[in-house]
Amino acid sequence: MITLLKETLSRQSIYMPTPARIAAMTPLTASETLFRVELPSGFHLHHRPGQFVELSVLGVGEAPISICSAPTRSNGSFELCVRAVGKLTNAVHKLPPGAKVGIRGPFGRSFPVERFYGRDILFVAGGLGLAPLRSLIDEVMDHRGMFDRVILLVGARTPRDLLFPDDLARWTARDDIEVHITVERPTEEWVSNVGVITTLFNKIDYQGRNMVATVVGPPVMYKFVLPDLLAHGLADSDIWMSFERQMKCGVGKCGHCQMHHIYTCQSGPIFSYQEVKNLQEAFA
């Protein structure tokens, strides 16, 4: 098996993707679809949770997309959850199943999973943030014995925007993970929590716990979630986030993802709060 990164690096150009196949497409919401991407035989993605790939449709463009399947569940093929917002992301939605796409990567820094061993893990997922976290959640659940308590908080705008309903049901059915879901604007059938994601924080018992938090959501979410987590006594170095920046290369060259002296595509997208708290542009 050849790792995709090795293949990416051995191509004549670091910008030239490896062809891959869309093996399956599952619509999740009106604008988000789950893609199962199959690499050519003999290739293995070999990623870590939190990393991303550059996804191409030749003739349209390229975009960074988080790998949303866990390493334990990405044998030969892996999953991407894509929200249609622009040219590339709309184009992949219009592809027929079986179509060819291009993949480069995996790039970026992952969640330091080994540092979470033996501790409580709190997952905080806002909107599309559940996609990168899903990779980590399953990685944790597939090595469940390595961790203490596992808690998942999920926030969405409406029940219709909730991603991965099957996975949420799968996790909720287990008794070794605590799942809380909230929506900002409920429908009539909605029977669960209503409110922004921070309203779920008081459901958790933090007392005397050795907890790490992993938080992924839109840029505005961090502004509200971070103060709450800090107030509950989490250490700066125990809060981990994924940062979204415009990325045109993924390999530290195009300058778009720069946040102070840091190239998010190289040193990120995963950062601890400790690492970025003094960077004015981090939460701008």
Binding site: Y15, L58, G61, E62, Q246, K248, K253, C254, H256
Partner: peptide, 30 residues
């Protein structure tokens, strides 16, 4: 700093991916 774009011919089959100088002073850079 650079931007990356694709260009294809009218058959939508043959094309190139190219990069061009970009500028952090432009509104859409970030």
């Amino acid at each position: 700093c650079f931007d990356v774009t694709d260009e294809v011919d009218l058959t939508l089959t043959h094309g190139v991916r190219l990069r061009a100088w970009d500028s952090c002073q432009i509104e859409k850079f970030a």
